[in-house]
Design a protein around this nucleic acid. Structure first.
Length: 470
RNA sequence: GGCGCGUUCGUCUAGUGGUUAGGACACAGCCCUCUCAAGGCUGGUGCACGGGUUCGACUCCCGUACGCGCUGCCA
């Protein structure tokens, strides 16, 4: 434990959490956890006093989703609060008074400015190394404003004061602040405070190298939540942007990263966000996670799609009307849901793909993809073969993938056709789609009765009007 | 413009004076196969450029180019 190590993530409540901000938060969190220090969340709402809580909600949501829990800050408190800058005015007044008394402040048309000592300032950065800034020229480095005429505060000033007050030991932030750092150090010195250690981490850019702005797709953490990314995967990917375990591992547990993480090992170059790799990593996480975890993550997406009941607590599958108007008989238990999810788990890369991959398991009113129907049932033998397959399936007593497969294969021999000649019609018949999970497992999960019913219906549907488009 | 940071396959990276420059994603081909994936195998593409230093530079130094950031009474 290193109680002296205190870091903070200090976002402005803009109404969303930027992916770059998320990584800054992540690196702060990793550093704190690595050393057993404290991770503080501070909301820098100097500018916008209204709707702060609302705008900050997206930040909380993003951080919680990534499981970057803060030790001090909004909701959890702490002995260095308040953690909203809008509530710290007296503190800033006090520091301003001190600077004024010491002659560091002068008025400029109503605004207050800090008079620079006009010296060289060396920033000894943990990531970038020692950098010498020449602040002697007022033309290139004007005295910074600390308070506007209307009394509102400027970021540089309150940021430094809060870091002093909150006893921040290491400032880990985006490289866009590197050039501001010498100014901040001047402030620390004028206040007689020891500056914290600084670590400026590289920025995240778009894939084409341009700066990622809030408008860019993928800039908001919320977008990943909506698209069905797994938090562990996104967090893992973010770890790899500017940091590396150096042993060629890509998928790496967060506990392991906490163990290995060091600021000195962070890259200095900006990194482009590679959506493909993040997507791939997400698939890896889904394929390798436990079924329990997958079910837990899948439920919100299934609820939203109306596939399972939108109630909290119980996720029973509600009967809906089938095509002929009678109430469907289908399993309403968790077991069926788990069985369905188990066979699509290794197939999907995003949780948002779940509805299209699972809806037909839960309703008789599933759509038939016209292209798939045309391709498979365009051949006149398809319906006949499906009918024959139904007859063979009808005889199966132990309805499991094994017997289902051997029965189908036996019929292939008998009819002297290819496996696909039976598999494809069967797949389209029960799902309406040409792609899906392993057929035999899918049929097993659906249950014999349901499969036979669907086969029958599809046979009728596709043998009636040969040649007519579906 | 000034100041600062950066520059290894398309992208993320390993590499710190002597390597056939390694891995991953993406891409192409093959295998597997009931579809789609997954998995396996194979392949191509890289040290921005120019000077130094050195027996020897991807590795060190200087310059150029390019990229990014800062240069606000934004954060």
């Amino acid at each position: 434990m290193r109680p002296d190590i205190r870091v903070r993530f200090a976002p402005s409540p803009t109404g969303y959490l930027h992916i770059g901000g998320a990584r800054t938060a992540l690196f702060n969190w990793l550093f704190a956890r690595h050393h057993g220090g404290t991770f503080v969340l501070r909301i820098e709402d100097t500018d916008l006093k209204r709707n702060t809580e609302e705008a900050a909600a997206a930040i909380y949501e993003g951080l919680r989703w990534l499981e970057l829990n803060w030790d001090e800050g909004p909701h959890v408190g702490g002995k260095f609060g308040p953690y909203f800058q809008s509530e710290r005015t007296e503190i800033y007044e006090r520091y301003l008074k001190k600077l004024q008394d010491d002659g560091h402040i002068f008025e400029d048309q109503g605004a207050l400015r800090f008079r620079s000592p006009r010296e060289h300032v060396v920033v000894d950065d943990l990531v970038c190394g020692k950098i010498d800034f020449d602040l002697t020229n007022p033309g290139t480095h004007p005295d910074m404003t600390v308070r506007r005429p209307d009394g509102s505060w400027i970021f540089h000033f309150v940021n430094v004061i809060d870091d002093i007050e909150m006893k921040i030991s290491h400032v880990i932030r985006g490289e866009d602040h590197l050039s501001n750092t010498p100014k901040h150090i001047e402030l620390y010195r004028a206040l007689g405070a020891t500056p914290p250690r600084f670590a400026h981490i590289p920025l995240i850019l778009n894939h084409d190298g341009s700066k990622m702005s809030k408008r860019d797709e993928g800039a908001r953490v919320a977008a990943y939540i909506e698209q069905g990314y797994v938090p562990d995967a996104v967090r893992n990917y973010l770890c790899l942007l500017g940091w590396s375990p150096k042993d060629n591992r890509e998928k790496i547990d967060i506990e392991e990263v906490v163990k290995l993480f060091e600021l000195e090992k962070i890259n200095r170059r900006n990194a482009a966000f590679d959506r493909d790799k993040c997507f791939w990593l997400n698939g890896q996480y889904i394929a390798q996670m436990s079924l329990d975890r997958f079910v837990e993550l899948a439920k919100p997406f299934l609820r939203q799609a109306g596939i399972i009941a939108p109630v909290g607590g119980r996720d029973s599958v509600e009967p809906t009307k089938s095509i002929d108007g009678s109430a469907e008989r289908r399993p309403t238990d968790e077991g069926y849901l788990r069985a369905v999810l188990a066979i699509v788990k290794e197939k999907i890369k995003l949780l948002s793909e779940l509805p299209e991959w699972t809806s037909y398991f839960f309703t008789e009113d599933y759509e038939f993809d016209p292209a798939a129907a045309e391709k498979v049932f365009g051949k006149s033998e398809a319906a006949t073969r499906l009918s024959a397959l139904r007859e063979e399936f009808r005889k199966i007593d132990n309805w499991n993938a094994g017997p289902i497969e051997s029965t189908l294969k036996a019929l292939v021999q008998k009819l002297d056709c290819k496996t696909g000649d039976l598999v494809h019609p069967a797949r389209v018949a029960v799902s309406g789609r040409s792609v899906g999970p392993s057929l035999y497992h899918m049929l097993e999960v659906m249950g014999k009765e349901r499969v036979l019913t669907r086969f029958e219906r599809a046979t009728a549907k596709f043998s009636k009007l040969p040649g007519v488009s579906f």
